[in-house]
Every structure is written in C-alpha cells, then in structure tokens.
C-alpha cells in the first residue's frame, strides 16, 4: 500500500503551483486534502511523478461572508462546519458537510477537492449546483469562472483544464428554507441517493425552488423541472408527486453495490420528499 516514488512540491502561492504544472505537464498533479487521491495512489490506480501539495497556499484558504459568499478551495469540511458566520448565512453547507465521511476525513477533506475531483459520489457538486455556485479556475492564461451547473461533463471529467487549479467557490447568500438529505449504507459511505433543496416562500406559496441530486448519474443532476413543479404550490400533495416524477426523469442511476436501478430510484424519491418537506418547513 505504498505508491511509486514521486517528487514532492510544496509551493506557497498559486503562481508557484502553476509553475510546477507548466514544467511537468501531465506528470504533475495537485493534492488538497488527499482523501480521494492518496487511496488511489496507494492502490497504484494513478501514478503521479510530481505531487503539488497546496496546503501552504494562503490564497486558497479563508471564507468571506456577505451578500456573496466565497469559500477558498482549501477550506476543509471541518473548517466549513465550524465557521459560525458561514453556518448562519448558508446553513445548508454545514448540514451537508456533516454528512460527508467521518470526523478524521473531514479534518483533511477540502471543499475544493470535493467539487474539483468530479467523483459522482461527492456531495458538494450537487449542493453547489443547487446553490447556483460559480467555480473560479486559475491557469497559465489567467482566471475564469465556470458555473457549477456547467462544470461536470462525465465521471471525473470536468470543465477544468489539466493546467488549471480550482481556487474558490462563490455563490449568492441563499434565502428561504433548505435541506440536504442523504441516504447512505453506513458512516463514511457515499450516498445511495442525496438531495439538496432550497425553497423560497411567500404567503404560503413557493416562489422559488432549486433541487439537485447526488450519485444518481455519472454527474450531479440539477433538476430544473423538479423545482419548477413546486412553484406556485405549497409543496405538498400533487405538486410534490410532480416534482419527484420530474426528478426521476432527470436522473440516470446505474446498478452497483448500493443496489439496482429501481431501488436507487425509490430511494431518490424518498430522499427528495423528505428534503422538500424539511426545506418547506424551514422556509
């Protein structure tokens, strides 16, 4: 369980990290919390000649909370959970992060790594699509922003180019009610199904709804139709059935050790119903 030899780099700024990538190209790879990458390296499923540790890059840390919320890519799940200002402004992040892995992994695992890796099982990509977040990527040609809803192309394939580093995540401070609901077989497992839901209400009627699902396709699924089905309703009864049906039409689960397709669709429906009910209740 020891990977092949590699050279270790620990730059102190983004330019330094980009410099190592420019010099070594495909042989270089950045490491954030390492809890997806190191297991793959140990299994020798990926081989990396130059490992670039981002832990000393100060520009990748920190959380700023205003009307726009910005989270540095190297903020850990533990840091996110314990940030009082962030938890007050966008409690859905804390609710989701507490359901990721276990305490030890949350001390190391980063938000940036979770969204950038492109693993369909990761929770943050769906959540960021629900929040309509923007990812900032920095590469040799400068910086560009990509919406979370356009970032994911296939499992482990994203809009990020190999010579770019995901540096930050930004989104407008969410309003209304929220819920992150996840079904998993045990602590530390990825979701069998998970749902991120944001609901805004006025006079008992839903005015805005955003719904995204996790681990039910090879990419996170933002279901615009599911959100639309709730608008103008109280989010119960026929409207809730319609939203669930719309979501089920958008997901594309595959059979694996978490169950057959029909089971996953069943769980997705149960999870979304719970998430909508809780978000409506909190709105």
């Amino acid at each position: 369980m020891i990977p092949p030899a590699f050279e270790y780099h620990r730059p102190t700024d983004i330019a330094g990290a980009l410099g190592v990538i420019a010099e070594h190209g495909d042989e270089a790879r950045v490491i954030a919390g390492g809890h997806s990458l190191i297991p793959m390296m140990k299994l020798r499923m990926v081989e990396i000649a130059h490992l670039i540790d981002l832990q000393d890059v100060a520009d990748l840390k920190g959380i700023s909370v205003g009307e726009t919320i910005r989270i540095g890519a190297m903020v850990t799940q533990h840091g996110l959970i314990n940030d009082a200002a962030l938890s007050a402004a966008a409690p859905i992040l804390r609710e989701a992060a507490l359901q990721i892995a276990d305490p030890q992994v949350r001390y190391c695992g980063t938000v940036g790594g979770n969204v950038a890796n492109g693993d369909p099982g990761n929770d943050m990509p769906g959540l960021m699509q629900c929040l309509d977040a923007t990812f900032t990527l920095v590469g040799p040609d400068g910086s560009r922003d990509v919406p979370a809803r356009e970032f994911y192309e296939a499992a482990y394939t994203t809009a990020r180019e190999d010579d770019e580093i995901l540096t930050a995540i930004s989104f407008a401070k969410p309003a209304g009610g929220y819920a992150y609901e996840k079904q998993k077989r045990k602590i530390g497992d990825y979701a069998t199904a998970a749902a991120a839901v944001l609901i805004e209400k006025q006079g008992g009627k839903i005015t805005a709804a955003s719904i995204a699902m996790t681990n039910l396709s090879d990419i996170p699924v933002f279901s615009e139709a599911a959100g639309d089905a709730l608008k103008g309703t109280d989010g119960t009864g026929a409207a809730l059935d319609k939203a669930v049906a719309a979501m089920l039409a958008d997901i594309d689960p595959t059979e694996d050790n978490r169950g057959p397709v029909e089971f996953k669709k069943h769980v997705a429906g149960v999870i979304l119903r719970r998430a909508i009910a809780r978000a409506v209740d909190r709105a």
Binding site: M1, Y8, H35, I38, H78, Q104, Y107, C108
Partner: peptide, 24 residues
C-alpha cells in the same frame, strides 16, 4: 482510511496516519 486504528493528533486535528504522506 476506514478503521481509524492509525489515528494520531496532528496540529490539533484527528487524522488517519495511513492516508497522509509523511511529507505533508
């Protein structure tokens, strides 16, 4: 990275020492 038998305290964090390169 599952069982936690290798847990050590590193700069105030509980970490699994099997999922961290010494260099880090």
């Amino acid at each position: 990275s599952h069982c936690g038998a290798c847990t050590v305290d590193l700069d105030g964090k509980s970490v699994k020492a099997c999922t961290l390169f010494a260099a880090q």
